[in-house]
Amino acid sequence: MSYALIVSEVRRGQFDERNLDSIGFANLAGKAAYLLVPQGDYAIDKGSVDLIIDTGLTESAFLNPLVMVDAITKVIDTAGMPDLIVFTHSSSGVELATYTAGRKALPIITDVSGYDKNEAIFYKSYYSDKVFGQFRKAKEGPVIVTVRSGSFREFVSDRGKAADTKALEGISGSVEGREFIEYVEEAKTGVDITKAEFLLSLGRGIGNKDEIPVYEELAGILKATISGSRPVIDKQWLPKERQVGTSGKTVKPKVYLAMGISGAFQHIAGMKDSDCIIAVNKDPDAPIFQYAHYGIIGDANKVRDKLKDILKG
């Protein structure tokens, strides 16, 4: 039987929501969903998949690419070659997927956010979602994918019965090449952008670090809290605790005013549930305008200066 092997992501005892996109993708592609899991006491909807394969591995061993490739090899030895191997498009999902592709010499397409079943076409983002490449396999055989969070969970369906669990025996969780040591939490400081009702969020479109104090002045008048997108944090224009996005904070303020942010999907994931999103960007095709309620096409710094003039006047 043709099946999709879904490599789940369980982090600190939580079955990640992103796994629903992997399961939904397998359904959309019309494949039986075999879910590969670590040991642990987390909640899974057993009616949403066709088989659960328990590796018996600890969570950190399971997420070690050097271990995972052995687990996948063992699944293939017992259940045959899958049509798809599906991972989450996340820090660990991509790491596991690409390493597996190299070891098994299998094709890989990452960050898949759409699928056309009739043509077997995978949609993959290029240039921060400005355009998409439509890929297909060049020859028959399995393909590895990582799927974008939020893209396929609507295709999860209930089978009407709980899936059986099969144990996968004999995988060693310890390897010489790579060892987990510990989790490291980001240092906690005074500012918590997740508590703010009004965020003035800055992106690389503001140009350079010297513009920050001018935005702080505006934020002071508007009583807004300053946050930022990844490039601004990477360049150390703003501290890490101010970062909105998958690697930073997820925020849901009443108003999210994004200035000079183009809207990479990792950023969108962190702010799309805000009550009201207002975006200011020079590029009318910036992806953020697809998610915003209101948009201004223009230079962020000019809009800022005009706002300041009006407010001070």
Binding site: R11, S60, S90, S91, S92, R178, E179, F180, I181, E182, Y183, V184, E185, E186, K240, Q243, T246, S247, G248, K249, T250
Partner: peptide, 9 residues
């Protein structure tokens, strides 16, 4: 990793 979490390996 996500949400400000890191792992040391």
């Amino acid at each position: 990793l996500e949400g400000g979490l890191q792992e040391r390996i």
